[in-house]
């Protein structure tokens, strides 16, 4: 019974999501709204603004470095949680 209920629930989600996928902006279209001034500046100015050839690295560690500090912190908190859990018992 529970399994059928879960399947029904997931089917509903699937239908809604597929309807959304049909409406979504076409994948890979250069005219998509995501290709706005944000990636343009990353791609055109990152060399002179950060000096890195790999644009991903310049986003990761310069433009959005605070995210990456958070990411390093996630690893740190995982260590803290795992070690405290393993030592406590």
């Amino acid at each position: 019974m529970r399994k059928i209920l879960v399947l029904f629930f997931l089917a509903v989600i699937m239908v809604v999501m597929v309807a959304t996928v049909i409406e979504m902006p076409t994948l890979g279209d250069p005219a998509n709204v995501t290709n706005n001034e944000v990636p343009r500046r990353y791609l055109e100015n990152s060399l002179e603004e950060t000096g890195a050839l790999n644009v991903i690295a310049s986003i990761l560690i310069d433009y959005r470095a605070f995210d990456t500090l958070g990411e390093a912190t996630v690893l740190f908190v995982a260590i803290a949680a795992v070690l405290s859990n393993m030592k406590a018992h």
Binding site: D67, V74, V77, A88
Partner: peptide, 22 residues
């Protein structure tokens, strides 16, 4: 997205201060 990263830190840390008890 920054908020999402902090969500994850918050989630693991708040589980961590529960599971630390013996």
């Amino acid at each position: 997205f920054n908020m999402f990263v902090f969500f994850e830190i918050c989630a693991i840390a708040s589980c961590g201060i529960i599971s630390i008890k013996e």
